[in-house]
Write a protein that binds this DNA or RNA. Structure first.
Lengths: 362, 362
DNA sequence: CTGAAAGCGCTTACAG
DNA sequence: CTGAAAGCGCTTACAG
């Protein structure tokens, strides 16, 4: 009985033990080298017979290759590290772009959210480097300090998305100045002469550029005046700022908000103050939130192609892998102004057939 | 000259070659075992002198441990795999919860977005298993098919977030039926007697439960009637459905939408039809989108604690690592109804001091 | 407290 | 076409 119990345990242990390439080799009567070749390199010259035997035995035994060992032996991780400050709508869109392009290229994603902390960002990069990843993508946050090491000391190909106070990095950015210029132009060309620019902190590169574009367009216009309200970081603060603006009987007829979040807060304030958008006050935002199309009135917004930026960054990392890191070059994408603020921006004439059921009243 | 060139090349190569534990050991005059102990186990008994010598030499040489080798040697990856269907606001919130808890526990995240494809989900799990990850978190999508292998055959601790047609898995879910019951109760208690339930597909578990909760509450009310509109998946379809409803002179005074996206589409339709929310038609949604607070009127919504679900899933995986996978048990979280639809839900009396600058007109 | 050595499970020149 | 063997860079019983 004891004997039996022990053999049971052994059998269980046998089952538990992961079967490796050696077990497959033994069972198939070939060398581990052959098994490795059959399983890992589709085009390696092997007899059809051996190939079949090996694959059959491997599947029969339920062999699962240990990617850790492979990765270690080849020092190719097929993984890129991604460091992001937060996971809001903007970065989620960026991450989706990164993930899609990475999967396409057969790469996995190691993700770290580092907050606004330069320490944690550096720690994440340390981790990526120590893990011998094939590349890293660093997504800039508004208040980033400079990266602590130059790109050539990273040890892996690195791409930065967004503006960054560090020198020498390959970056994927968007022309915020141009975008802001266009958005301001949209407002000016519709007859607005006093425009408020609602923003957070113009020390941050993207927001500095948005301010620049705003000012640049206004500078071209004779009778136009701009007013800049800084220190507005979220909806609630935008709400308060605009409520105050209205209470002070502003002469402004338009608001350019540096983000859609601020724009939504502004619109809420205008609605609560009984002002109509855009007839009493036009509002334009940045980021083109998905919901911006569906608020009423819908919001004209500058679409930041965060997903395209993410995909581009992956493309650059892949290029570095094949052609060498020195082949990478920074790229600047163009944002697009989505003009709305007339309701019904989608086809509401063709009503879909919906299945409508009535519940019996209980 | 040639000699020099060659030595230059060698020097360069020397620089390029990653320095390993062996180089540090040689330079410090100790064994690799000692270096490993000093660098990896803080509490291992080593002379203070040797410890200092090793750490000094290591930092002087710029030694970066190869985590790949460590991981391989110990077969602890300190990484969990996360498979999600998409990266929308809901899943981004969930991912943020996962990431936060994982970082807290010293774990990295390998992320894969699998779309609505069961194939890709299985492939992602294969990848996670082959990479010997410490655990996997599978985030359910609405139209998931069952997982192809039972939990005990995964080879790693697995936790499923959300409802899933597969048996035997440890899950983290939310009580959707209860949430829907409460939301319906909110509408009924405010005097609404004919309520429309706007939903996508009641074959999907979460949406089936939301329908159930709706019906259950109505069944308790004598004079209340429910109407179910299915096949509504996004804002535009909700817009069309509600536009049609209004055109048909509905007697309903309230809409319970199965998602905030649908609710926002419904509100846009009501606004465009000249109806007021909530006086002409009340609207309640699910998901508590961040923007739902800031649309006007603001949207009452059921908050799905996606981040808490994510954190809980990580907690379970960690428990499996320490106490064994059999210690894991499914958990059900309670959603919360956020009642709004009265504007000004945040403090708009205390206006922040904003820095206001006027630009000179050009 | 320290070291020599085996081992983690693959890949891949090299030789046949 | 196939195999024996070295090697990837660590960790960790085991012995001293």
């Amino acid at each position: 009985m004891l004997q039996l119990a022990i053999s049971d345990v052994l059998a269980t242990m046998e089952l538990r033990k992961k079967i490796g390439i050696r077990d497959v080799a033994k069972a198939a009567g070939v060398s581990v080298a052959t098994v490795s070749r059959v399983l890992a390199k589709a085009d390696y010259p092997v007899t059809e017979e051996t190939r079949k035997r090996v694959t059959d035995v491997a599947t029969a035994m339920g062999y699962v290759p240990n990617l850790l060992a492979k990765t270690f032996a080849t020092s190719r991780t097929d993984t890129i590290g991604v460091a992001m400050p937060v996971l809001n709508a903007y970065y989620a869109k960026m991450l989706a772009g990164i993930e899609g392009a990475a999967t396409e290229a057969g790469l996995s994603i190691l993700l770290t959210i580092v907050g606004a902390s330069d320490e944690r960002r550096e720690a994440a990069i340390d981790q990526f480097v120590a893990r011998q990843l094939d590349g890293v993508i660093i997504c800039s946050g508004a208040k980033d300090g400079p990266l602590r090491r130059p790109p050539e000391q990273m040890g892996v190909p690195a791409v930065v998305i967004g503006q960054q106070p560090s020198e020498g990095y390959v970056t994927v950015t968007v022309d915020n100045r141009r975008a802001s210029y266009e958005a301001t132009d949209h407002l000016v060309s519709r007859g607005n002469r006093t425009i408020v620019f609602l923003t957070s902190n113009s020390d941050w590169p993207d927001f500095r550029d948005r301010l620049d574009g705003f000012q640049q367009r206004l500078a071209e216009e004779d009778r136009a005046t701009g007013q800049v309200i800084e220190g507005v970081y979220d909806e609630a603060q935008a709400y308060r700022a605009v409520t105050k603006l209205v209470a002070e009987q502003t002469t402004a007829t338009a608001i350019l908000a540096a983000t859609d979040r601020q724009a939504l807060g502004a619109m809420a304030a205008l609605a609560d103050a009984g002002l109509r958008v855009p007839s009493d006050m036009a509002v334009v935002g940045f980021d083109n939130y998905h919901t911006s199309e569906f608020v009423r009135p819908s919001l004209t917004s500058v679409d930041m192609p965060a997903d395209a930026m993410g995909a581009k960054a992956v493309e650059l990392v892949c290029m570095a892998k094949t052609a060498g890191a020195e082949k990478m070059a920074s790229v600047v994408l163009e944002p697009r102004l989505f003009i709305r603020q007339s309701s019904g921006s989608f086809d509401n004439a063709a009503l879909l057939a919906q299945s409508v059921k009535s519940l019996p009243s209980a």
